[in-house]
Write a protein that binds this DNA or RNA. Structure first.
Lengths: 189, 189
DNA sequence: ACCTGAACACCGTTCAAGT
DNA sequence: ACCTGAACACCGTTCAAGT
């Protein structure tokens, strides 16, 4: 049977978890699905498109709606995004890179926009605020996952903390408090 | 005359600006300083250490103190960091990666910590708040610089906007307002 | 329609050997 | 002390050719 895009993406995700983004090569993915690396180019235009598929697969597990009080909803959304990213090795880097080049059909901050809108922000400002918040989340988790990789490499002491819940919560409270304080008012510069 | 660490870093920075991080190879750096790629390993343990040197060189142009009223100081620091990063191609990605692996002697948020302290935050919280703020700045500029690369590649229309001043200012106001609102109070969770 | 196999033009890094 | 040159074990991508 012919190999499918979905099969390739699934294999890539498994390799990602086991070996990390740096070792996620076309040859290795080909091996995993029982095909030459060059065959993958019949199914995907290039490696980046394939990675976009992996990013979408990861983000598919995000909760898609956060009803209720805006501050609590924003915190819920951010914690959910973090935990989704922490589920797969190097996910933050992969998602951030995919987002940056504009590939991938799932945008990590999509569910955050309506929260800001509900809090009274005009559409475009809500999008910007959501994007800013997700930039913090992605940056924070990227840092955590890099440390997890360093730990695996043995360059960090085996009992080193790689997660930083307190740092995450503080950053989150910072933007949540800011959102509550501004509430969509345009800037005084 | 023997080549120096500083000379290698300077050459790498020039190549970075001209060709981007993806094309910053050891062989190319060797060519630029008139030496074999393998020679660089006599001066640096590996490529990542060299990149840490480049990161330090970029961050050396940051202003190192932001006296005065905390909110204005924070905004000044963040805008300065952004403009420092925008001065060199792919600088945000390079600095973020260096920061994540714990190399590099210059920390981009170093000057932001005393601002939070001055605003009444206890030391550790000030560090976390500064780090959260710099995560936003790095993420935002990374996104802008990726778009600049896409523009160069012609995959974006030639008149596409790559900078996003409004998005930056809004994110910045968000954290500044949050900082002013919380003012170092521990969380109610 | 889907896949192979060879090739192209690269990588980072190591290491014996030179001066 | 500093550098060369060859080698190792890889990359992403293309493309004629096969079935």
């Amino acid at each position: 049977m012919a190999v499918s895009r979905e099969g390739i993406v699934a294999a890539a995700l498994t390799i990602l978890d086991e070996y990390g983004l740096a070792d996620l090569s076309m040859r290795r993915i080909g091996d995993a699905v029982g095909v030459q690396a060059s065959t993958i180019y019949w199914h995907f235009a290039n490696k980046q498109s394939l990675l976009a598929g992996v990013s979408d697969a990861i983000l598919a597990t995000q909760a898609d709606a956060w009803p209720g009080e805006p501050v609590a909803a924003l915190i819920g959304w951010a914690r959910d995004l973090r935990s989704v990213l922490l589920t797969h090795r190097d996910a933050a880097e992969l998602v951030a890179a995919t987002l940056a080049v504009g590939l991938g059909s799932r945008i990590p901050d999509a569910a955050a926009v309506p929260i800001f809108v509900r809090a009274g922000w005009p559409g475009q400002e809500a999008e910007r605020a959501a994007r800013a918040t997700s930039q913090f989340v992605l940056g924070h988790v990227m840092h955590e996952q890099t440390r997890q990789n360093l730990l695996r490499l043995g360059v960090l002491p085996p009992d080193a903390e790689t997660l930083d819940d307190e740092g995450f919560d503080l950053g989150l409270r910072l933007v949540a408090a800011g959102a509550a304080a501004l509430n969509g008012q345009p800037a005084p510069s």
